[in-house]
């Protein structure tokens, strides 16, 4: 390798991984990778990716998708703000779903804010509105010099 610096990144790392991330209030992103053994294991089975939300201490099915497992990622849209979710990748057998991998749970922001300033001990309460005060349209936010607007 002397003198020549490495530049290639592998397509994957050959280990079971399933990660769920929050993109914004109503959208979650999941990516996964499977080991050789896991791929062999799932080859003959009906596989699916499930998103589950936490309700009363248990994770309940929210939505099921069957992506081409080669792609390795998925955007879940229209998730419910304020809830906790986890993703499961597994197989169906006789109507039952068995997760092979589970992601860590994530909390989706509520997206609901109270706009009015009320002061402590004052009677009037601010109204809850379901819009976020989004970032103001900018001339050049962050990494300023590296962006031409």
């Amino acid at each position: 390798m002397d003198g020549v610096l490495p530049e290639d990144i592998p397509p994957g790392y050959g280990e079971n991984t399933l990660v769920l991330m929050v993109q914004k209030v109503a959208v979650l992103f999941a990516y996964w990778e499977m080991s050789q053994a896991a791929r062999e294991f799932l080859k003959e089975r009906q596989t699916a990716l499930r998103l589950c939300s936490l309700a009363e201490g248990r994770y309940l099915h929210y939505v099921t998708v069957s992506p081409t497992f080669l792609t390795g990622n998925w955007y879940f849209e229209r998730v419910t703000p304020g809830k906790k979710y986890r993703c499961e990748l597994g197989w169906w057998d006789n109507g039952d779903f068995y997760p092979l991998m589970c992601s860590q749970p994530v909390d989706v922001p509520t997206g609901a804010i109270t706009l009015r300033v009320t002061g402590r001990g004052k009677r009037r309460r601010g109204k809850r509105v379901t819009a976020s005060v989004g970032a103001v349209s900018t001339v050049g936010v962050s990494s300023g010099v590296t962006r031409r607007p």
Binding site: V22, Q23, K24, V25, V27, D107, P109, G134, A135, V141
Partner: peptide, 16 residues
């Protein structure tokens, strides 16, 4: 909870 000053107010700018 989650928030940022990026466009949209969350993580969309860095995860899309």
């Amino acid at each position: 909870g989650l928030s940022s000053w990026g466009e949209g107010g969350y993580s969309e700018v860095w995860l899309n």
